[in-house]
Amino acid sequence: MLWSVILLSLQVSGLALFFAAFIGVPFGAWLALTRFRGRSIILAVLYTFMGLPPVVVGLMVYLLLSQTGPFAQLQWLFTTNAMVMAQAVISTPIVAGTVMAAVSGVEPDLRRQLLSLGATPLRAMWDVVFEARFGVLLALVAGFGRNISEVGAVMLVGGNIEGFTRVLTTAIVLETRQGKFDLAVSLGLVLLGLSFLVNGLLLILQTRTNGIWRAV
């Protein structure tokens, strides 16, 4: 029972992160590397969306998927698909914003120098993003952290159905409502442990690559 809840949490949040990364990483990189009219407006919208209350996202996804909504035929409401959708909407701006900050932190002249070495514009862009790889990784961790700890949206669109859509956070809410605080606290510790694990992994990755660099 507990394992299936943990597994489902990882699955939903992981899949949502995949979509968030698929859109957010290129979008963030593009925002960092190009200048155009209206960019500041897009930035303002992005920053707003980075702080989007998950419940509001949940409500929007709910209305889209509900029997009276435009995407009712999908039959996605109260399924993991809806949860993935909501979490992806929540974490995409976070991934995009963090990637943008990371890529903006790379020396702007680097791209010109790569171009002068014969790189195509796209290739040079890619290498600049790769130069910010640690920041990109951090963005993914931040997105995943937001996903897995999110409760409002998945409760609304997933429904916390046992064996189907119950994840760690909604299980904690349920156990707390029932007054089973010991179970709620253990679930909370599992959640905390997962976050710690992911961040620890990042740290190891960072020190390991640094270690290789230092060793030679």
Partner: peptide
Amino acid sequence: VVYLFQRPLLLS
């Protein structure tokens, strides 16, 4: 043509 910049930036 290759241009060597005054302050060259290398990839990490």
